[in-house]
Every structure is written in C-alpha cells, then in structure tokens.
Amino acid sequence: METNTDDCILSVDHISLAFGGVKALTDICFNIREKEVFAIIGPNGAGKTSMLNVINGFYHPQEGEITYKGVHRKQMKSHDAAVQGIARTFQNVALFKGMSTLDNIMTGRNIRMKRNLLWQAVYLGPARKEELENREVVEDIIDFLEIQAIRRTPVGRLPYGLQKRVELGRALAMEPDLLLLDEPMAGMNIEEKQDMCRFVLDVNDQYGTTIALIEHDMGVVMDISDKVVVLDYGKKLAEGTPDEVRGNQAVIDAYLGVAH
C-alpha cells in the first residue's frame, strides 16, 4: 500500500469502533486521495455505513485517528464536519419531507448564509441579496441534476429516484470537498442507475469533488471508482484498484462463501 500522503484529503488510521460488545469496525486504515472516486464495498453488516458515520463525525471511534485536510481529529460534531466541507447522503433518503425541492437544496446552503435574525426579519437589503446569490447557486445545481420541473414540489410527494437526486443536490449545495454517498443507487432501475452514475462522475469531474461511496452493485463500483476498499465483519479485507480487488481471493471468499 502506498504511503504517499501528500495528496490525501482524508486518512483513516487504525480506527476501531464498538457498540458495547459489538465490534463494528476493527483497526481500519485507508487513505482517500484528492479528486478520486473511492468505493467502500462489503457484504451486509460489514460496517460500511459505520465507517461513513465515523468519517463525518456522527459516530466517535474508541480508537484511532482521522486526518482530514492535514488536520488530526479525535472527536468532532457532525455539523462541524459539514462546515469543514464533508457532505453526505443517506442510505434511506433523509430529506426534509415538509419542504419543497428548492427549499431542501437551499438548506444545504445554510452553512454559507450569515445574516442575522434582524436582517432576515426585515428581508430587504443584505438578507435578500444573500438569499438571491445563494438561489443562483442552487438553480445551477437544479439545472445540473435536471430537476427543474419539481422545484416547487414538496419532496414527500416525489418518487424514490428523484428523492435520491434531490438529496444529492442538497449535499452538492454545500460545495463539499469530500462527498460521502451511502448507496446512492440502491433500489433504482437501470436507467436511474445510469443517470446517477453520470451525475456522480460529473460532480467529480466538474467540481473536482472527492467522492467516497458505498455501493452494492458491483458493475457500478468497478466502472466508476478509482479505488476500492473491501470490508467484512468490521475488518479490512482488501484495498486497491477495481481490478486488483476483483482478483483478490479473500474478497471472492467473503462474497461467495468458502467451504469449511
């Protein structure tokens, strides 16, 4: 494994996480390099989502250290991680159901909006200026994701595929440096998967966003990722390019099972 850490945006160093007696993650190490598409795969219950939760500060690992943009950190709150440029989407869509698509994505801009309550109550002047500037950024994202028609629709009424897309939009609105996607293509049909792959690659390409994703569809993972790490029972089985991982005997055993 290469130890070149100069262009690493995030390194995970000997992370262990346990819930009581259940060991969710054991001694996990990997590096995510800038501008790469990094995939975390593994069978169900392997600890993939726990890993993402550790990265964005939702879980606090008992051991190990995370280095993000050259800064070590032990404990961090999720909203601080957001301010530092880590965005994520969820396995089960976690949108704000009572709000419109536009408002959902606008909420992603909240970390960049600073006007105080008094200005907001008056609305005219600086608060409106700020609102309009951010609206423009959001409209760009709406164009990018091709969801213009559902701008005013409450997200609770949208079909699942579109909800996933809106959720990606909300994460993009934060202009993150590191985007964590938890099963962005789960439960989608082939066309929707293709669309989503295109968006993920375009985000990576156009905005230079580093992407870490969890995905069960091996075709998708092998196609779009630059590097893959395989987890099983909270331990790291393998790491490398898609081709390396595909040929790894331990990985094949984990997925297909071995005769004992």
């Binding site: 939702f58 999720s78 909203h79 704000f96 909420t107 909300r170």
Partner: peptide
C-alpha cells in the same frame, strides 16, 4: 423564508440530516 426558517424546518423534518448538513 430565510435561512433561519429553513434550519427550523430542517430540524423539524429530520434532525439528524439537518445536523449533518451543518445546522
């Protein structure tokens, strides 16, 4: 309709997601 209002509604609809996007 400003960002404070959106942060309230976000907290109401899905507090974990709200926290993760920086509220």
């Amino acid at each position: 309709r400003g960002h404070t209002g959106r942060s309230w509604m976000a907290m109401r609809d899905m507090d974990i997601a709200a926290e993760i996007i920086g509220i």
